[in-house]
């Protein structure tokens, strides 16, 4: 199948023109009626606008393997806060309105799902359990879907590595529920979704990050207990 005329000696050095072969005809219809043109144009608009914006939204809000790191329900933007961050991370951070410490000194893990992949629901009760993270100072806080703290009479919004009650073997459990629970109870309220943020700061972070790179970071599991 030839797409181009083979130039004759006379035409050498002259401008080449594409021939109307079958391949060319596939791309350029010969006779397009008004309805066919409209159908083609509608297809063009749908594919280009929906595809362009939807893929951009996905790359910015969800992130890909190139920009984010996943550990169970926890997602972290690899280059968050870095001056040499990729455009997707940059767009995500601009939209988020946050000022994260560069990812080489601190890490932020956001969970909007439980360990089984179900979206976190503020009407449900969850147990968050684990042993780590082990290095530095870390804190786990509950927010609504927009990142606002949840109003509660105990005025308790987070547990951190210093304030948490641990079992003798070093493991810990946080219970996320509307009503008071024994142990580390983190109250949940409102009706605007639920998101968990785990932040790890400090001198141990660099060691923690290398552990994360090896897949050995001990991030807690988020287990749903029941739903009202």
């Amino acid at each position: 199948m030839t797409f181009w005329h083979r130039p004759s000696r006379k035409l050498q050095g002259a401008r080449l023109r594409p021939s109307r072969t079958s391949l060319a005809r596939a791309f350029v219809p010969r006779r397009a009626g008004a309805l066919t043109f409209l159908a083609n144009f509608a297809l063009f608009l749908l594919l280009s606008l929906a595809g362009g914006f939807a893929s951009a939204w996905y790359g910015i809000e969800i992130g890909s393997r190139l920009t984010t790191e996943r550990h169970g329900p926890w997602r972290s933007w690899i280059a968050a806060g870095r001056p040499d961050a990729d455009p997707y991370t940059r767009a995500y951070m601009a939209r988020s309105g946050r000022l994260p410490i560069t990812s080489t000194s601190a890490r932020y893990y956001l969970a909007r799902e439980d360990s089984e992949g179900n979206a976190l629901d503020e009407r449900c009760e969850y147990v968050i359990e684990g042993r780590g993270p082990t290095g530095g100072w870390w804190s786990l806080a509950a927010y609504d879907a927009d990142g606002r703290l949840m109003r509660n009479p105990a005025e308790r919004y987070a547990f951190n590595s210093a304030s948490l009650l641990r079992a003798p073997d070093g493991s810990w459990q946080i219970r996320l529920a509307r009503d008071a629970r024994a142990g580390n109870w983190l109250p949940v309220s409102g009706d605007n979704g639920l998101a968990l943020m785990l932040r790890v700061y400090g001198s141990g972070v660099r060691g923690e990050l290398s552990a994360a790179a090896q897949g050995g970071l001990d991030l807690p599991a988020v287990r749903r207990v029941r739903c009202d």
Partner: peptide, 10 residues
Amino acid sequence: GLSWFWVVAA
């Protein structure tokens, strides 16, 4: 009548 041209352009 749908053309690949429009798909590629999209």
